[in-house]
Amino acid sequence: MTETPAVFTSDPAALRAIGWPVTDDAGPETWRAAIAARPDARPARVVEQHRTGYIVVDGPDEPFSVESLGDWLRPPGYREGRTDPTDRPGVGDWLLVEGDRRHAKAVVLLPRTSAIKRGAAGEHYRQQLIAANIDVAFVVCGLDGDFNPRRIERYLLLVQGGGVEPVVVLTKADKGDPDEATTILRAAVGAQLAVVAVNAKDAASVAQLDPWLGAGRTAVLVGSSGAGKSTLTNTLLGLEKMKTSAVREHDSRGRHTTTHRTLIPLPQGGCLIDTPGMRELKPTGEEDVTDTFADIEALAAECRFRDCKHEKEPGCAVRAAVQAGTLDPQRLANFRKLSEEVAGAANRLATRRQQKAESKVQVKSLNKRLDEKYGKH
């Protein structure tokens, strides 16, 4: 058995600065076959996504553009606009590219190690990729009118559903009490949740996030507009790269100063993806609610009936915890709400997949009949 060669034009340290995993210079096991099959290609990471192509980096040099992936890599239905947008590369994805920087072409999309998605707005089921190949998600929340444990639960559902470690970052300490907010949040969401309170404008305070930002690691910032994500990014970088703006006084809402997702190498050794503020957080149907509500699931195991709905059934341990004051009734209400949303999205996802499978069978059948009538060409 021959070893898979690691064919890189950049040295491993340069790749780790843009998030290449530190465990192995050749990358995760799932990438090695693709790398070995393309000995003339080199890895590059998507830092910006546009309609006609991608902006990528392959080390410390300036970003460059690559052509969109060829038709042979596009799933069936791409030209007709039926392909799920998450099937296309997005910010954080790793590509194998060929050619020099002036004529670079993407030839392979490497499998994702993790991905944060949400259900796109609108009546029809669609997924929207937020970021790919992420190690940690900083859920940024201001201690002004932005502080909302129930919305943080929703972020945690999407983040943990993508296989990403969550860390809640509380900003704007001058607008509230960080210790009190941390206590409220852990009581409402879970005692094991990592919560860090920072002054987003102070480098020494923001340095508390450095343990999550080492070489080869990728973090993503998510949160509402005006929560302080761009300010946090500027402080981590040590320069004013991202535009910032003040929030409205009456509701603490901010403008979308970040208008698109972008990946930025950090002096701490890792890299960061900043995202526009998200006001609608719809689940995709692929999330596991038990990841975010492990405390309720543990209580549910003590219920008298295995299929207990935690409503009027006798012997319900969940309602008993609410009555005893050890479980926040609003957390239980949000658990029910999110469980229903995830179940509904899962049903729509199953229907969509069934329709795509049936369409594929019909296309194959049609092609077979055409081949039989006119011969293969």
Score class of each variant (00 low, 15 high):
126 R>M: 01
57 V>A: 15
291 D>L: 13
53 G>A: 03
65 S>M: 10
212 W>M: 13
198 V>E: 06
237 L>E: 04
285 G>R: 07
313 E>W: 08
305 F>I: 07
229 K>T: 12
72 W>S: 09
301 A>H: 12
266 L>Q: 04
292 T>M: 02
108 V>W: 09
285 G>D: 11
365 S>P: 02
311 E>H: 15
214 G>H: 09
150 R>F: 00
65 S>H: 05
176 G>R: 08
194 A>N: 13
334 N>W: 00
236 L>K: 14
11 D>W: 08
303 C>M: 06
346 A>M: 10
195 V>K: 05
349 L>N: 04
73 L>C: 00
152 I>F: 02
253 R>A: 14
259 T>A: 09
256 H>W: 08
101 R>N: 05
81 G>E: 05
60 P>W: 08
149 P>T: 02
141 C>N: 14
330 Q>L: 14
72 W>V: 02
176 G>D: 08
225 S>T: 06
290 T>I: 05
80 E>A: 14
9 T>A: 12
268 Q>W: 02
123 E>W: 05
50 H>Q: 09
358 E>F: 06
156 L>R: 01
274 D>I: 11
335 F>Q: 06
146 D>C: 12
239 L>W: 11
24 D>P: 01
159 V>D: 09
108 V>F: 03
336 R>D: 14
283 P>Q: 08
318 V>P: 00
177 D>Y: 06
229 K>C: 03
305 F>D: 11
70 G>D: 15
307 D>N: 15
358 E>H: 13
375 G>Q: 13
61 D>T: 15
363 V>P: 02
84 D>I: 07
